[in-house]
Design a protein around this nucleic acid. Structure first.
Lengths: 95, 95
DNA sequence: TTATGTTTGCCAAAATATGACAAGTCAAAT
DNA sequence: ATTTGACTTGTCATATTTTGGCAAACATAA
């Protein structure tokens, strides 16, 4: 499964007609890394999401949600008790 | 916040009147480690849950759920988009 | 072929988690 | 007051995982 975050930022980037090499210096990484992030073999640092959102003129919260959802998905995927665990956490954070 | 998993296995252990030093050799760790796991400053390896459940005569699935929920909680706690991300993952795994 | 944008593989370095042990606290028994 | 037993905490070296950076590969278009 692809990463939703990766797919999304790629879409944003392409819609703005930016090349990897244009985006990358602002994030202090090289094209290889951002390429991997878009293809989900690497993670963007959480703290970099706002900057990337700004660069791509994308909604920070959308990206934060997708980023988090990817992390969660990686954690639960294939776990038999995934659904129950998710339910319990959802309930717990509503406090 | 305490770990639900840790609290639960401690309760199970105490209900069975087992000491740390009785449980620990079966898991190939020392008392310090299991103590930390119960107090949530260390993680039990996921693969060890079934063995621990057996030792404590506890329900494997209950422990697996709590263990996973702890991981998820650590990931989302304090995140503004936690709820939305959880919702999205919950939906996604239902396939 | 060359140029451009992206992707992949590799490996050393950085960051994080773990295991082991020693020393600590605390409560109950003596 | 001291000892004992159960548990806790701190430290630190080692193991594991993640990352950064580079070089080479790939794909497409000119």
């Amino acid at each position: 499964m692809e990463s939703q975050f990766g797919e999304r930022i790629r879409t944003h980037r392409e819609n703005k007609n930016f090349y990897l090499r244009q985006v990358v210096p602002l994030l202090e990484m090289d094209t290889a890394q951002l390429s991997k992030i878009e293809k989900c073999s690497r993670q963007l640092k959480k703290e970099q999401i706002p900057l990337l959102a700004q660069i791509l003129k994308a909604d920070v919260e959308e990206l934060q949600t997708l980023w988090l959802a990817d992390q969660l998905y990686n954690m639960v995927q294939g776990e038999p008790m995934a659904d129950e665990a998710l339910k319990s956490v959802t309930k717990k954070i509503k406090n």
